[in-house]
């Protein structure tokens, strides 16, 4: 077997080091080694977005990143979205809008939506639908998710 590689990263603001096999995905390491199971595996080939994390500020499917590629990277997972004792406005708006049913796609949606609002604080409905097309939800029909992101954008605007 190929020797394991030592990888140093920053995850959710803290230094995280781990050993991994080259074939292991970042998602696998996050979930099985670092026990950050909030990122979900829905398809393991980049089509559902349930495993979305931010890597150096960009949304990526962590199933399509090798863990060894994360050397030196800064990563934010769903576990790092809330601000200390407070939910992030996106999380709060998902709850208030009932934007989740089974909840399995929710972490990926919230992380992707954060990337969207970080870049585009006033997205139109079209923008939201387009930018979140890489995230599948099978329960909600997306209506309440779109509204939650719209509300979160408004809440964040009020905050700043």
């Amino acid at each position: 077997m190929v020797k394991k590689t030592h990888v140093s990263t920053t995850i959710n603001g803290e230094t995280a080091e781990f050993l991994c096999e080259p074939r292991q995905s970042l998602l696998e390491i996050l979930r099985d080694t670092l026990e950050l199971t909030g990122s979900k595996e829905g398809c393991n080939n980049g089509n559902c977005g349930a495993c979305t994390v931010l890597m150096d500020g960009l949304p990526v499917n962590s199933c399509l990143v090798l863990a060894v590629e994360a050397e030196g990277a800064t990563i934010t997972t769903i576990e790092g979205i809330a601000e200390q004792a407070h939910l992030h406005p996106l999380q709060q708006c998902f709850l208030e809008n009932a934007a989740l049913q089974c909840g399995i796609c929710t972490p990926g949606f919230i992380v992707a939506a954060k990337a969207l609002l970080d870049r585009n604080p006033k997205p139109t409905e079209h923008d939201i639908r387009f930018e979140l097309a890489g995230n599948l939800c099978r329960c909600t029909g997306y209506d309440k998710i779109v509204r939650a992101v719209q509300d979160a954008a408004a809440a964040l605007e009020g905050k700043h």
Partner: peptide
């Protein structure tokens, strides 16, 4: 169960 599901804490089968 909402807070657990928007923070990634809820334990699904694979977790």
């Amino acid at each position: 169960d909402g807070v657990d599901k928007v923070t990634g804490r809820a334990i699904y089968g694979a977790d």
